[in-house]
Computed example of a mutant assay.
Amino acid sequence: MTDTPGDAFTYDGGRVDPGETQNIRYGVSETYLGDPIKIPVTIVNGEHPGPTIFLSAAAHGDELNGIEVVREVAHEWDHSDLHGTLVCLPVLNVPGFIAQQRYLPIYDRDLNRSFPGDETSTSAKRIAARVFRNFIAPCDIGLDFHTSTRGRTNMLHVRADMEDEPVARVANAFASNVIIAGEGPEGTLRQEASNAGTPTITIEMGEAHRFQRDLIDEALSGVLSVFAEFGVRPAESVQWPGWRTVIGGWDEKTWLRADVGGLVEMHHDVGSLVYEGDRICTITNPFKTDSDVVEAPFTGLLVGTLENPLVYPGNPMCHLVKLDVRTRRALEHEQAADDRP
């Protein structure tokens, strides 16, 4: 790496030179009263050349864990030896964040199905277009943080198109135990950014409406590992999670859904290893006179589980992914080590 300075980062209305940091509120839309709707953006341009990486959170306004990850990277880490540029977008969906809800309150649109956006289309696509053009497309790598929707929780895992080699490199560098492979739905930030030449992964972590410190710290370790892989923090080293499973086709994962309505008692926590035939949860009526036992259809890992114990028939209760024998044994070994006094 040379000691020559990198390039300036430019966006509509501004410029951040090497060695500079800017905190800006960038206008993406307007309220019914014509007042500006602005998103917070921190741009840290290192003194040394390197990749430009965006970190984004709260595309769904009630998903808070990622906000703290992005804020800590932007404002608490030492960037004196930063090689490259960080574009930190802690709250993409400001209207949803203010309303404490998942979607944009404007016609209940999903911002994370609106990328890369369209300056002449719906409100959601106009917002997406301004964000994408100014702060996503100029980047070389992307990390997009999410949580489960309300009433459910996820263990920390990565979602990425593992058939796209540059995306797979980012996903592997993040050092999570679980990677769920796939392109992702059309209009998602990770798919559209990757298609536009910015390899991007989604990090799922925890539940909506709260900060979960253990998951935030785990995600920060993953960010540091990505920075090491791409030379952004040259003194750091890429991490290995100890064991990893990459989940591909639909035959390797399933959402277990309720066949009856009632109240759910979960018998395992998110992140648990369960074996084929294990009782995962039991659904009972208010009198506990009827019960429906839900068993694991295969041996696997509970990546996501229900937090709200009330279900209608068809409601998802847990997300189970298959583990091969080698991964299962590695996980069993790890859990046995954790249980030792």
Results as ranks from 00 to 15, higher is better:
R169Q: 14
G61A: 07
N154A: 11
V223F: 07
R130I: 06
I106S: 06
E252V: 08
I179V: 15
F174K: 00
P313G: 08
A296Q: 05
G184C: 12
G96R: 05
C139H: 07
M266I: 08
G231E: 14
S176C: 15
L215K: 06
I283W: 05
L156C: 14
F9P: 03
I180G: 00
R152Y: 10
E72L: 11
Y32F: 08
V238L: 08
H209V: 04
V223G: 03
D144W: 09
I106L: 08
D269H: 12
E332V: 03
V87L: 11
N112H: 11
M205S: 13
D118Y: 13
S272K: 05
T202K: 04
D35Q: 14
E204Q: 15
E119W: 15
S114M: 09
P297H: 15
N308P: 00
M317G: 02
L64F: 14
C318A: 14
S148I: 01
C88D: 07
G117F: 00
L33V: 09
E252H: 09
W240V: 06
E229S: 03
F132G: 05
F298I: 02
E236P: 01
N195V: 07
F145D: 02
S272Q: 14
A124L: 00
D164C: 13
G248V: 06
A128D: 12
R126W: 00
P138W: 11
L220Q: 12
D17G: 00
A99H: 10
I37F: 10
G117A: 08
R109H: 11
M266Q: 15
V238I: 15
D339S: 15
G261M: 14
P309F: 13
C318N: 10
L306F: 05
Q101K: 11
L302Q: 03
L89E: 07
P341W: 06
S56V: 05
V178A: 10
R159E: 04
L224Q: 10
V91T: 11
Q212W: 06
R213Q: 15
E20M: 09
G242K: 03
R159S: 07
T31A: 12
E332C: 07
I67F: 02
F227R: 00
M162A: 06
G261H: 13
G66H: 06
R328N: 10
Q100I: 06
A235F: 06
L82E: 02
L310P: 00
A57C: 11
N308W: 13
C88M: 13
A173Y: 01
D78G: 02
